[in-house]
Write a protein that binds this DNA or RNA. Structure first.
Lengths: 217, 217
DNA sequence: CCTAGCCAAGCAAGCGCTTGGGAGGCCGCC
DNA sequence: GGCGGCCTCCCAAGCGCTTGCTTGGCTAGG
């Protein structure tokens, strides 16, 4: 939760400062309810009136708690990305070799992804919208850092002989990250547990990218 | 935004070709143009006015060729799914063992997916919308047949000892199908060729699911 | 003269968001 | 204690705009 993200180019009347302590419970309820709707119907496909109705108030009352509809989406997505990035950084700092770091990334971030499945779905479905909105420019920065971590570890693993030498790191990164982020949305649909998906994923990944000579894992 | 007429890029003075081949040429243009817009901004995120402007006509004129906006999306998606299903069926009828069938599916359908990348993107981004519209109910049927083919082949491979015996076929199917369908949308973003992606994919897949005892491939 | 194709104009519904004000709780001050 | 002022939270109404879609009429080719 980075409060500096509240900054906004628009110089409209600032949001009510409120008490520095915990914000109203109603506000948190709206965020939770809205994120579920965003996940089900997409960000653009969800109306402020729907969010308000689900929260038991009228649409105009939403704007007492939030500056705009985008501010609600911001609240959901920023917290999610911050947490994922924290997972990645901690995996890098505590892991040993490249394979170990990647396994830590998968294992720690998978639960974060599962917990924020609404934010993940939003990110995937409405990326084409968010990526063009200046307000959500920080997403590009965050995703670039994630990409950098993957690529660094894949390169490191190649040089250490843990991964196949013919691996295209950029291509492999795209495959692996999306493979990792995708299945976290089926939870309710497929009836698989998070750990179930993670184990199947890790087996699929490592037995594919680990070089036979290394014989790791 | 500006309803005033813009210069039309393509000359309308094209030869009055006998449009005996089904519908008019303009209609096909609209479908092609619309599918690109749908891929870029999503189905719901694209307006009829945008499609019309890109086609060089006014929005009302669209309705001379199509009953509704959904009819345009229908035209794009139905053709795509038909072609993919044909690929799957032919792979099943001409392939030998399960691994061979799956490789044929990946290799033949990948080019179909790449050629219809707009339809694929539409299917992924706006699935939550299409799945609730009765008009697009046939999608569920088609996807169910695709799922059945995957599961049948995975089961067959398990029994023949080609795939790991501990494979969860349902879970593996979800992983593999999404892994296969995902990367076909990066073409423009990553700069990878279709064959490049397919080869990386096949290596990642088979070296992960082929049982060591079989030693195939 | 007929019809396919298009334009110009606009309708009803829905969108995000604004406005003005009212109910109720908390505050300090007499 | 009583009371006016203030603040939080919400409602009722509606504004300006965009949406998918409709209508009526003009034009050109067969």
């Amino acid at each position: 939760m980075d409060p500096s993200r509240k900054s906004q180019p628009d110089s409209r009347a600032a949001a009510p400062r409120a008490n520095g302590a915990g914000r109203s419970r109603r506000r948190a309820d709206v965020i939770r309810i809205a994120s579920e709707l965003f996940a089900q119907k997409g960000f653009r496909g969800t109306t402020v009136r729907e969010i308000a109705e689900a929260a038991g108030i009228l649409s105009g009352s939403i704007y007492h708690h939030f500056d705009s509809k985008e501010a609600i989406g911001d609240e959901v997505l920023a917290g999610f990305l911050d947490e994922v990035l924290a997972d990645y950084r901690s995996a890098v700092s505590t892991g040993s070799d490249a394979a170990d770091v990647l396994e830590r990334i998968v294992r720690t971030s998978s639960h974060t992804l599962a917990r924020h499945h609404a934010a993940l779905t939003m990110l995937q479905n409405d990326w084409s919208y968010f990526s063009t909105q200046p307000r959500f420019a920080y997403m590009r920065t965050d995703l670039r850092e994630i990409e950098q971590i993957w690529i660094t570890q894949l390169e490191r693993g190649k040089e250490a002989g843990v991964f196949r030498p013919d691996l295209d790191v950029k291509l492999t990164y795209r495959l692996l990250r999306d493979i990792l982020w995708l299945p976290m949305n089926w939870r309710q649909a497929g009836g698989f547990s998070t750990d179930q998906v993670v184990d199947a994923l890790l087996r699929l990944l490592f037995d594919g990218i680990t070089s036979p000579a290394a014989g790791a894992r």
